[in-house]
Amino acid sequence: MPRVTRWLVRSSLVYLVLALLAWWALAAQRAGWLPATVAAWAPAYLHLFVVGWLTQLIFGVAHWMLPMYSKTQPRGREERLWAAWAALNLGLILRVATEPLAARAPGSVWGVLLVLSAVLQWAAALLFVINTWPRVRPRRS
């Protein structure tokens, strides 16, 4: 298993735990055990699960298992996956941190950081697609 895959998969496991904690926190908020402000994290919770856990796990395993690109670069340019890992995680952490604050004051510095998180997550997907696309091809005869 390549090093970048190990980082992607381990990071995805961290998000799985965080997503389930957030799910519990949302239930606890509805039960009145936690303050109402917790509810503002509901969209972020969903993305911890779908982006942080599922999509990141797919990125890691796909990079490991898809057909080789060439003998000299079996998995394409690995630095693209490192950049995707950094952008996805930074983008997602920024989102979780700023979304509830930006909701109260759109156009503030929190809003600008939320836009930055959008750009980072989009760039991560693009880097993954650019590196993966040429590896998705029929068997050479």
């Binding site: 809003g111 959008a118 997550q121 989009w122 997907a125």
Partner: peptide
């Protein structure tokens, strides 16, 4: 999907 998600986040951040 990520492009649409990014556009929605830009809306949330800037309106």
């Amino acid at each position: 999907g990520f492009t649409i998600g990014a556009l929605v986040l830009v809306q949330k951040g800037t309106g």
